[in-house]
Simulated scan of single mutants.
Amino acid sequence: MDLYQHFREEEYPFIDQVLSWRDEVTHHYVSRLTDFLHPREQRIFKSLIGHDETLQLEFFGAWDDAERKRAILTPFYEEITQGSFEVELLQAHFPEKFVSIEHRDVLGAFLSAGIQRKKLGDIAINDGYIQIVVAKDITTYLTTNVTSIKKANVQFQPTPFSKLAASNNEWVEYSATCSSLRLDVLIKEMYQVSRQQALDLIRKGYVKVNFQTIEQAAYVLEEGDMLSVRGKGRTRLKELQGKTKKDKQRITFEKLL
């Protein structure tokens, strides 16, 4: 059976990469550490490795509910520790009485400094402090080159994981019934907009599925997909719960507050 038939065409390069890592670990008995993977990539990785008893696959993103995590694939006999993931927790303070900093501001500052998204994990902002998990090999560059966010001067410093702040992720679960799993249909249902408004958002490039801009209204979502709409937040399709007697799809989805 062709395993590619279970995935989307745009995911084929990542599948090839995972299969290459698997072969390398299996035949050369080495470990492979990835950059930070988003949830869909993690799901694909797990499904391709399956229950192979000669291998072990672990993920780490610091927070229990972290979205982005590094993965390590090793022979079954290797010991995997937190240090195996080669990540660092960085923290910076900002004067929250004078400036409001959000997740997008922090990420924008990093990307503007030439840092690749795949080198960055999740970001938490609490009580005037920013925390971010990063690949250890960019720590020096990041602390040197990211010294301001919006109008605030910041200085990121390595911080022990024992000082990890609470996660900002708060998801609320909803149930719904929809006519199909098309992108426009699900935007209409999840964000409570009209079908025409959903189409406009898609055509303007305001919609991402698994962090990739999608401009096809007929694009079909799958269980576990992350959906984000500019200005309206993020949702994820948690579970498909079968069809109704009228052949409509029952779904459970979560929305990030």
Rank of each mutant, 00 (worst) to 15 (best):
Q155F: 13
S84V: 06
W21I: 02
G242Y: 03
K232R: 15
F94N: 03
Y219W: 13
R195G: 13
Q82N: 15
R195S: 14
Y77W: 15
A124K: 02
L186T: 06
V229S: 03
R68A: 14
V133C: 11
F253A: 08
V87L: 10
R234Q: 08
P160E: 14
D225C: 04
K255A: 15
L107E: 07
E170M: 06
S167F: 04
R250I: 11
F7I: 06
I44T: 02
R40N: 12
H38L: 14
N210I: 00
S148E: 15
I125E: 09
I187Q: 00
K238D: 11
V18R: 02
F45L: 08
A152G: 09
V172C: 03
R104E: 13
F76H: 07
T177P: 09
P39M: 09
K255D: 07
M1H: 09
L73M: 08
E10Y: 12
F7V: 05
F110S: 00
D65Q: 03
R234N: 01
D122N: 04
F161D: 12
Q241L: 13
A217W: 10
K69T: 04
A135M: 04
I44Y: 01
Y29S: 15
I187L: 09
G83K: 12
Y12T: 01
R8V: 04
E78G: 00
G231R: 10
A152R: 05
E88Q: 10
A66Y: 03
T235V: 15
L55M: 07
K245W: 09
S31T: 11
L107C: 14
V172S: 10
K69S: 11
H103S: 07
T81I: 10
Y129A: 13
V99S: 12
G242A: 12
R40V: 09
I251D: 08
Y219P: 06
V172A: 10
L199M: 15
T140N: 15
E88M: 07
R250G: 06
I187R: 02
A217N: 11
F110I: 04
N168T: 13
Q56F: 07
Y191T: 03
L256N: 12
R230K: 11
A176L: 08
L256K: 14
E173C: 13
I80H: 01
